[in-house]
């Protein structure tokens, strides 16, 4: 049971972080399908820190360094979307799809090159192991394993809510997603706001990536990307109606479904039902599809999302 709660919380943290990222991008008017790729690159950055920073630096430094580097990696990678979608008015869906493919390919090439060079050609895998440093991320209270990243996720949630709804910046950002022409007419720089939205999504997406790959395992095979979690986060965002607090609740629900897949064998009655494990893997996607079917009729999507803003067509 504790294991189920533990996994639910950690997966919910991942989904919440990434979905909040998506929320910022879409609220500014840019669809970010590339979250999956951003997660991969963020995970790569974090994993490198965990691999190369010695465990002796202590938990606070380790957590901080991992968070900063993975967020930075995500942020830099999201520039690809920002430049294409905002400056060049490219199709955001194609750009995002390309970013997903690019991230997995680039991470695989990078990690393989690193492993190959380090082992003189003997190790050509795309794995990064961080067994010795992973423990620093955890805090054990009783039989319960807390992860520092959960705290980070909650802080990000609060920050996201405040930024979007209690600051001038948030109001302006949302205006650019609803009606950029109107926003521009009162002197808001739409391009700047959209840059901010996309870069924040990169930051949070990258952070989500490292949280995901350190959940439960201590070796990650980068060839596999992040197994669709970025896409699941998009569903969480839509289900959460582009609102941080609702996103948090949606993330908990989806995190729970996903956690069931990991730990169902620990429950006698679930095991007795003899459901193949792939069904648990499918569950979050099926639920999100059903939920979307019931909630999309009156969509709360930002009105101008996906439409490149052209100053000339005001």
């Amino acid at each position: 049971m504790t294991l189920l709660i533990q996994y639910t919380l950690i997966f919910a943290s991942v989904l919440m972080l990434v979905a909040l990222g998506g929320c910022f991008a879409e609220r500014s008017g840019v669809i970010n399908i590339g979250l999956e790729g951003i997660m991969v690159i963020g995970a790569l950055g974090g994993a490198l820190v965990l691999k190369f920073l010695p465990a002796s630096v202590g938990a606070p430094v380790m957590v901080l360094a991992t968070v900063v580097v993975s967020a930075l990696f995500g942020l830099i990678f999201s520039l690809l979307l920002a430049v294409a979608a905002i400056n060049f008015k490219a199709d955001q869906t194609i750009t995002g799809t390309a970013m997903n493919m690019l991230a997995t390919a680039a991470a695989t090439v990078a990690v393989k090159a690193m492993n190959t060079a380090a082992s003189g050609g003997n190790d050509v895998s795309s794995d990064i192991a961080y067994t010795h440093t992973k423990d620093l991320l955890l805090v054990r209270i009783g039989g319960f394993e807390f992860n520092w990243f959960m705290v980070v996720a909650v802080l990000c949630l609060i920050a996201a809510y405040v930024a979007l709804y209690k600051t001038r910046f948030g109001l302006r950002l949302r205006a650019c997603g609803e009606h950029p022409q109107a926003a521009d007419s009162v002197g808001i720089n739409v391009y700047k706001m959209r840059y901010a939205g996309v870069l924040i999504s990169g930051l949070l997406g990258g952070l989500g990536g490292i949280v995901y790959i350190t959940a439960g395992v201590s070796v990650w095979k980068f060839e596999n990307g992040v197994a669709g979690f970025g896409f699941l986060a998009l569903a969480v965002m839509i289900f959460g109606a582009w609102h941080p607090l609702k996103i948090a609740l949606a993330a908990l629900l989806f995190g729970f479904c996903r956690a069931l897949g990991n730990v169902y064998s620990g429950f006698g009655f679930l095991l007795a039902m003899n459901i193949p494990s792939v069904v648990y893997n499918m569950l979050p996607y099926i639920i999100s599809l059903i939920v979307l079917a019931f909630t999309s009729k009156k969509s709360r999507a930002p009105k101008a999302e996906g439409i490149p803003y052209d100053k000339g067509s005001r």
Binding site: G228, Y285, I286, L289, L292, A293, S299
Partner: peptide, 16 residues
């Protein structure tokens, strides 16, 4: 019927 964007439903159906 439900106004679900084909990109989103497509992604979910891919994994299912």
């Amino acid at each position: 019927l439900f106004n679900v964007n084909v990109v989103i439903s497509g992604i979910m159906l891919n994994w299912i």
